[in-house]
Design a protein around this nucleic acid. Structure first.
Lengths: 249, 249
DNA sequence: GACGTTATGTGAACAGTGTTCACATAAAGA
DNA sequence: TCTTTATGTGAACACTGTTCACATAACGTC
């Protein structure tokens, strides 16, 4: 009887094989696009029969789901790292942190377009397993909500102004959401977070999918300015001014 | 020799067959998802040999590209109709028109999720033919720019404020874009349009792909309020106030 | 009208795919 | 040592997109 971490040798072999399969699948995807993954190609690369893969993944879609979950985790790691690094530099406020984390989000998406498209594109044809994938996405959104918590604590969010935007229906919906969360962010803060997230997602998604107009392609400033603008929209005492040529630096 | 419109009977037969193929492809997609389209299934549905389809489309990807282009046109038609209808009601200003057109955009996307995902998801594995598809997308963006033109004419956009947001690099990029367009919209107006478009795309894309938090699922108000907020962000004399429970009505 | 040309459709074939199944074999636990 | 369990094999099935030689029907032209 060994320690439960190492477990039996066969167990260790198993996780190693699973990792190999995933690695080969990523390599295959790098060649054939997000949906061009082929079980047989993966099996060929590992030098085993195609049917052997079914000992590790119940189907091709299951393999894709595993890759999606890993990708969510990877994104969350990137965001968490950016958050931690910016926060420990205690000269910057929460609004700056948001812009920095948003930029690292974009950087990750542009550096890993395949991973991004796998997660935020039309993932799986019959997309089952929505339970697992949405659970995996929670870590990323938790980081964004954490930043909003910081902003609220710093009195940086104009909660009254955002509240004034909401209809009765919206106030009720965000109120319900607020009560469902652990740390009860004010409903206006959740609305503010959604406003930021919508802009963040829209900008990145358009850019990764090449839906940007030519003159903006590859512009770091546009994204930074957009994030600045939206965070300014929900801030107290809107004082956005002209910044030097590279606001990301 | 007949009129060039009707052309020969064979030509008429051809466009009819093309239409039938597309219709069968849409039906197939309704069953098997955006990427589950099968040439053989389409051929089976039309009662013809699979190889016969190659007389009409050079490949499966070509068929998909045709569907994408048709979809872009369909979306542009929906936006154009919303624009025309709102503008002829000359009591509403351009900012209202933007919100209305944005809502019809969202409505179209929610009513036709497959079409939407086909265009804005990870379209074609090796996505060739970007030339044709981007050309087809121009009609839709032209409508949004047209609304921005209306807003500028109504002095509704705070061009100075938006200009103050831009870095030197951005000012140059948007300046180049402005000179490249037909009616020379001020660079700040183009930036303002992009800010609106980013929010519009982000909100719709998240909702269609089910990336919204539970309490917001199916909320018309959230989208309307978000669009209001972003258009207010770039407007002169920001006067956004609480509206009645259904701002879309 | 008849005649060559062009467009359209057929069926077989090829290479590839995901998935299943009966079977072998190596490792693990009793 | 013996039984159970996990892992791997190879053949098979039912698909897929695509190509090719071949037939046929409609067309433009003489």
């Amino acid at each position: 009887m060994q320690a439960s971490a190492a477990a039996t040798r066969r167990d260790r072999q198993r996780v190693s094989t699973v990792a190999e399969i995933k690695a080969a699948a990523w390599a295959d995807m790098r060649r054939s696009g997000p949906h061009g993954i082929s079980l047989r190609a993966v099996a060929r690369e590992l030098g085993m029969a195609p049917s052997a893969l079914y000992r590790y993944f119940a189907s091709r879609d299951d393999l894709l789901t595993a890759l999606i979950i890993d990708t969510y985790d990877e994104l969350a790691d990137a965001l968490q790292a950016a958050y931690d690094q910016t926060r420990q530099d205690n000269s910057s406020n929460a609004a700056d942190t948001f812009v920095t984390v948003a930029q690292s989000y974009r950087r990750w998406a542009l550096d890993n377009p395949l991973r991004y498209q796998l997660v935020f594109g039309t993932s799986i044809p019959g997309y089952t397993g929505t339970d697992q994938t949405t659970a995996a996405s929670l870590r990323s959104s938790a980081i964004l909500l954490r930043i909003m918590r910081d902003m609220v604590d710093e009195r940086a969010v104009d909660l009254a102004a955002v509240d004034r935007l909401m209809t009765d229906d919206l106030a009720q919906r965000f109120g319900a959401w607020s009560e469902a969360t652990q740390d009860h962010l004010p409903r206006a803060a959740l609305m503010a977070a959604m406003l930021c997230y919508v802009a963040l997602h829209g900008a990145i998604n358009l850019e990764v999918n090449h839906h940007f107009p030519q003159p903006l392609s590859g512009s770091d400033d546009f994204f930074a300015t957009t994030m600045r603008a939206v965070v300014d929209r929900i801030s107290v005492g809107r004082t956005s001014v002209n910044r030097s040529s590279s606001p990301s630096g």
